[in-house]
Design a protein around this nucleic acid. Structure first.
Lengths: 136, 136
DNA sequence: AAACCTGTAACTATAATAGTTACAACGGGT
DNA sequence: ACCCGTTGTAACTATTATAGTTACAGGTTT
């Protein structure tokens, strides 16, 4: 199972998109909604910031999305968090002296690439706005 | 990132499918090809056995596939290992007093279901035989 | 100055994963 | 009948990823 960071990121971005009173939107408040620690929130926000999804000013409560919810695909969020990371791990150093061992990694890469591709399409097809619509 | 068990399972099944000399096919030999411990192999094989993909006899080297490589989809392998497990974790107990917190879980489930669906299709479309063909 | 915030480093706790040791039970060969 | 190699499992350890926490430097507002 993949970790819950993607879920937390979407939760945070949803809060930012729907909370009009910016002064209310502290890391502590967000942590209260997500049910985690404020530092965990600030850390995740730092990642999203680096990914170019939002801005903030140190010392001031509140965050601003840099991309409209309608234009913010879940794939963009995913990439901000995990980069181009592969989804499935491949065991390393299989025995090169064995016919299977020698080629299995490349073969698995092919399999996982097509799987990952299908996932990307789904994530690309959904935006933060779609999530917001479901929260109504 | 998801663990490497799926990769190891495909590796093991490939060996079983391609090794004609059954007496050679001990857990130690397989472990040598995968580059892990024989117990790890026997453990994984136990899982695949429970999933109905192969048989073995205690005390005797060698394993037999119960499904032809052509009919053994990667999805069937995946299910044998991970059951119906969700791919992405959802953080638990978001704050029900918050509009977002109250509904985010259900909303994320919807997102992940469609993603998982796309993955299933890909895994269903590929068989162990496809992997074997790439090992040539 | 005081009260609040963000950003980050450093540490701890927990849990998943993989690796290892040990051994009971089985089977085939001699 | 006995030995040797094998599977099947339990129990333990090691490693790593993840999340949670403490602490504090530095910004902002009043």
């Amino acid at each position: 199972m993949v970790n819950s960071r993607f879920s937390v990121a979407i939760h945070i971005l949803s809060l930012i998109a729907t909370t009009s009173d910016k002064s209310q939107l502290t890391s502590e408040y967000i942590a209260g909604s997500v049910n985690t620690n404020p530092v965990v929130v600030r850390r995740m926000i730092g990642v999203l910031k680096k990914g170019g999804l939002l801005t903030s000013q140190s010392g001031i409560a509140g965050y601003d999305l840099l991309v409209e919810p309608n234009d913010l695909t879940l794939l963009a969020i995913y990439h901000a968090i995990d980069g181009p990371e592969q989804l499935f791990a491949i065991h390393d150093e299989p025995n090169p002296a064995c016919t299977v061992g020698r080629k299995i990694q490349r073969s698995l890469e092919g399999v996982y690439t097509s799987v990952w591709h299908a996932m990307e399409e789904q994530l690309q097809a959904q935006t933060l706005q779609d999530v917001l619509d479901q929260l109504r």
